[in-house]
């Protein structure tokens, strides 16, 4: 009798806790014990970012200081000024390089997210002959070293007549297996079948079910996928496919500048900062949206 009352009381407390929307099963001690190692690791991981920022503002003599100093002493904008002077003197207008990379990145990312999500949705939520086979092939394809597929890839590109065009960089990026694999696992993990079924009952076309119901649920997944794809394409060089100077990408143009020799080290540091700033900005935008989706779904409940 007494035990029953006691357990009832415990349940009551729990329910009250939940109603106050306090997280269950958490202790203050545990929170503190977790924060310390996490903080240490985070500080350690921040090193490259700090290094990149600090280096970009170092005057040339400080970059070659011996023993090397981690932090900048007399910050200057000289590196950026020099970079812009070099950029304005380039043979192909520099805006062209910027356009190339921005174009490749946006087109590739949009295409990839669409193509990969469509396929991943069908692979996760439809039951059609060949589905298991395709899923298996995708995982296998992830494991083959790209170093040796370069030559067959070149042969295919030249057969298609796509050498030295944007297409050779953009179109293959649509079909990277990682994206489909990621999206398929998220559709499987987060989208309940009942929801899709009831939408179909209401007469929604399959594409509408995919676009209006499944995709919003896996928003954290495709935001993450956007981040990965942008990160990859932003540093794409076009490799062996692109030869014309006016089609070359920003990383190629920048590496040409850095190859100017040791005197360009300061400019190199400025370039390093500019190059990582775009993925970082995309990171901040996408990740803040990942968190926002969580907040709204909390209200819905």
């Amino acid at each position: 009798m007494f035990a029953k009352v006691k357990s009832g009381l415990k349940n009551f407390r729990l329910i009250r806790k939940i109603n106050r929307r306090v997280k269950v099963n958490r202790t203050v001690g545990g929170n503190v014990a977790m924060s310390i190692p996490l903080g240490l690791v985070a500080a350690f991981m921040a090193l490259p970012m700090v290094y990149a920022i600090s280096n970009a503002f170092k005057p040339l003599n400080e970059i070659f200081f011996f023993p090397p100093r981690f932090f900048v002493r007399n910050p200057t904008l000289d590196n950026f000024r020099d970079l812009f002077i070099i950029m304005s003197n380039s043979w192909v207008p520099f805006s062209r390089y910027i356009f190339n990379t921005v174009f490749i990145t946006t087109a590739g990312t949009t295409g990839h997210v669409l193509v990969a999500s469509l396929a991943a949705y069908a692979l996760a939520k439809h039951n059609f002959p060949g589905r298991r086979f395709i899923s298996r092939i995708i995982v296998l394809a992830l494991m083959f070293s790209t170093a040796v597929t370069a030559i067959p890839n070149y042969l295919i590109m030249s057969r298609l007549g796509w050498i030295d065009t944007y297409l050779s960089v953009i179109v293959p990026s649509f079909a990277t297996p990682v994206g489909v694999f990621l999206m398929r696992n998220f559709f499987e993990h987060a989208v309940p079948d009942i929801m899709l079924e009831s939408a179909r009952m209401d007469g929604a076309k399959e594409f509408a079910v995919f676009w209006k119901i499944a995709m919003p649920i896996v928003k954290p997944a495709w935001l993450t996928l956007i981040l990965f794809t942008v990160q990859g394409l932003w540093s794409a060089t076009g490799g062996t496919f692109i030869y014309s100077e006016q089609l070359k990408t920003l990383p190629v143009a920048f590496s040409q500048i850095i190859q100017g020799g040791i005197a360009r080290s300061g400019v190199g540091a400025a370039i390093a900062l500019l190059m990582i700033s775009v993925p970082v900005i995309v990171f901040i935008i996408t990740q803040s949206n990942v968190i926002e989706t969580l907040a709204t779904s909390g209200i819905k409940e």
């Binding site: 469509l118 439809h126 395709i134």
Partner: peptide, 14 residues
């Protein structure tokens, strides 16, 4: 749904 991906995937990866 799978066709666009599979075409490109076969051509450029498989």
């Amino acid at each position: 749904f799978v066709a666009p991906f599979m075409t490109l995937f076969t051509l450029f990866y498989i």
